[in-house]
Design a protein around this nucleic acid. Sequence first.
DNA 1: GAAAATACCAGACAAATGTCTGGTAGTCAA
DNA 2: TTGACTACCAGACATTTGTCTGGTATTTTC
Lengths: 210, 210
Amino acid sequence: MSGKTQHRVFEFVRDRILSGSVPTVREVQRAMGFRAVQSAQEHLDALVAEGLLEKTPRISRGYRLPEHHSSAFMIPLLGRVQAGGLEDAVEDPEGYIAVDGHPSRSRLFALKVRGESMKNAAILPDDIVIVRQQSSAEHGDIVVALIDDQATVKRLKVTRDTGGSIRVELHPENPDFSPIIPVADLHILGKVIEVRRQYEASVFYDSDVS
Amino acid sequence: MSGKTQHRVFEFVRDRILSGSVPTVREVQRAMGFRAVQSAQEHLDALVAEGLLEKTPRISRGYRLPEHHSSAFMIPLLGRVQAGGLEDAVEDPEGYIAVDGHPSRSRLFALKVRGESMKNAAILPDDIVIVRQQSSAEHGDIVVALIDDQATVKRLKVTRDTGGSIRVELHPENPDFSPIIPVADLHILGKVIEVRRQYEASVFYDSDVS
DNA sequence: GAAAATACCAGACAAATGTCTGGTAGTCAA
DNA sequence: TTGACTACCAGACATTTGTCTGGTATTTTC
């Protein structure tokens, strides 16, 4: 980054892109207080030349952050996921959350965990799991599956019984719950690739305190 | 959502917005195969009227997803935090991660957890904690404190002993570890407000499998 | 000191873009 | 049949926006 103004331009553009609205050249101009469009344009060109920004020529708001600098984007936080799969649920998300560092941009969604069945895998109620959409998974993956018309988070186990036939089970990570052996078809919605838990609003209670 | 075409328009626009590039009216037109701009415009107007989209009039690519007011931004992921506090560590972050929904933009940083001392609080080694910088905290908060020139994540407990004097302890959430009762000054770096764990790269091993 | 580089400004033009008016064809209910 | 409604089309216009040419100071480099 050459100069100080350059840096300010970059910060402005990066913040705008991260917040979801790419600025126009003239918006950069105004934000920096330039009286000429060209001043902003030149800084932007310089940033592109330095590899800090990327752009698509001639299309409005065509600036992007190179992959390694952000890859941040928003994915839907779904409410109820029930029979019928994701299509309906994606229709009506509870909100959106920012993720980064994941390649499969479009096939991600987030879900709030219900119940304590994955407690021993350090996944608690109200945690948010980020899920990559896929219809199959491997042994050991934590997956979101549709059981009894309800989305549930479980560990997938694929074993081979004495007869040599393959056996698929969904294991909770909590001794109080029993494994689920799907009789019919197992509908896997996706694989959990990240877990998040926010403490901010939560209230901690400790009986030791008077 | 009125009709089927409406639905396709919404899906197209939503996917484009989530992937970071808001489409223009004419891009919607072309994607849908309309021969008139107005056809796309009307569908977009309808979606706005239904509350599925929001827009800023007269500005290009001015469509947004509702409740998308979440301003995502990047915070530094720190490497070693040692004596001397945060200042030095923030200088040289290992990288940046995207967060959203938190108000205190500038006073956030992220840290990778080492050790299993918070296992029973569902915080595992290599988890990433997002920390709000503050020098004091309340009973029950999970905090990052500087112990022996090393940043550590613990539960803060403030109790009152029989004499009535206040007693501050840092509790691990793992029976294999002992509580820390700081003799001298306790240097709190901040409060943990979020925990994240990524599974993507991790390898799950289960001895049941041949 | 001259040449090059930096950092900005003024003004313009063509394309992209949001928006408008006024159509047609089909469906559905009264 | 009529009228309302939906879904689309044709064409146009005013801004917005990316891009360009040509300028002026100031600083840096040789």
